[in-house]
Design a protein around this nucleic acid. Sequence first.
DNA 1: AACGATACGGAGAGTGTCTCCGATTTGTCA
DNA 2: TGACAAATCGGAGACACTCTCCGTATCGTT
Lengths: 203, 203
Amino acid sequence: MARTASGSRSPRADAQRNRDHILDTAAQYFSEHGVSGSLDAIAKKAGVGAGTLYRHFPNREALLAALLTARDEELVSRRDAIRAEGAGAASCLELWLDALIEWAGAFDGLPEPLRTATTTEKSPLGITCQGFITTTDEFLTAAQEEGTARPEVRGRDLFLAALATSWVRDAAMADELSTQALTSLVKNGWAVSATDTARQGRP
Amino acid sequence: MARTASGSRSPRADAQRNRDHILDTAAQYFSEHGVSGSLDAIAKKAGVGAGTLYRHFPNREALLAALLTARDEELVSRRDAIRAEGAGAASCLELWLDALIEWAGAFDGLPEPLRTATTTEKSPLGITCQGFITTTDEFLTAAQEEGTARPEVRGRDLFLAALATSWVRDAAMADELSTQALTSLVKNGWAVSATDTARQGRP
DNA sequence: AACGATACGGAGAGTGTCTCCGATTTGTCA
DNA sequence: TGACAAATCGGAGACACTCTCCGTATCGTT
């Protein structure tokens, strides 16, 4: 008898098929309508009953978490690629933050549930976020040891700042510069230091 | 016949009474349940029919805008007070951003509609936000002329950053440091400049 | 007091989430 | 292959929320 790694019986073929199909449909639907699109509509579009959708994914967050699994893997690959490049710790951190911002912008409205999950104890999304906070911390610590990142900053703060940047972008579509602006703000701040004052005028 | 400044007939006494009462009730309800609390529940709690609530405030945003009017005035006073203090432009900007963050944190979930309003052409909230962006720009420009703020930063970016900070705080209740952390991030960035490197180790 | 303008209230239409359970499909074993 | 039990399905329906409509009540004026 077929079994999964965890010892439970492997899912029935139709169940697996439905699950996959719901996931595909949801990905498209969320792309078009944002993450608050109607779940019943997704079920209908996928050609299954509402009950089927909710059995596979008890709530919106569960569906979102499943949907992000594929993207999570991409992000992990990105992390490894950044590490492999062997650039300076500050550049690595910068690249990682960019990757994080892009990841959180996969769907319209995604930053909101991510933020909630980050601060909500246990949940599929929350665990994912926790992992990425850890990664952020690793890159950050390296940069701090290198002397290129302020020692008082925490990985958690940078992660939240990345989510916030994506959050701003969600609505500020009229102004694509906003993402760059926020990114630069988080990196350099609005205040000029003594060094920068001397430099002022030549970019 | 009594008339308002704009020339239309002044509202009937019962209408005014209801409006005020709804506003009071909504303020309390939103404080307890966040800005996505049920509007019908507010109507019921205020002892009026749903129709009455929606006649006075056609949608959630209108109610929110009316609710914020009082707080807006406080914020404007704060602006004047900051100007009057006559401190350095950088300090003024800093104080103003703090005031903005506090304002946007008046209710749980408020940053979301504010951000939407900021990027949505005309709307009661949007106009309010536009005004505060202008104020932010004034403080920012002063700091830039003083040489204490980076020239490439825009008031709009700082305003959105303030909203984002409030947004993060909304969920990160487990960690009150987050607001400070984000504020400092927006001011100084995570990267250390050459000057700071020399300073490292003595706070 | 009487009348027109204004405002009220709540039933109900439309939409969305999520549950429950009889009907159906699948996998297994004889 | 046939039959049985477990697993899964589908969609009606309970419940919540937003917002509209319109008959009824109240206000302010003459």
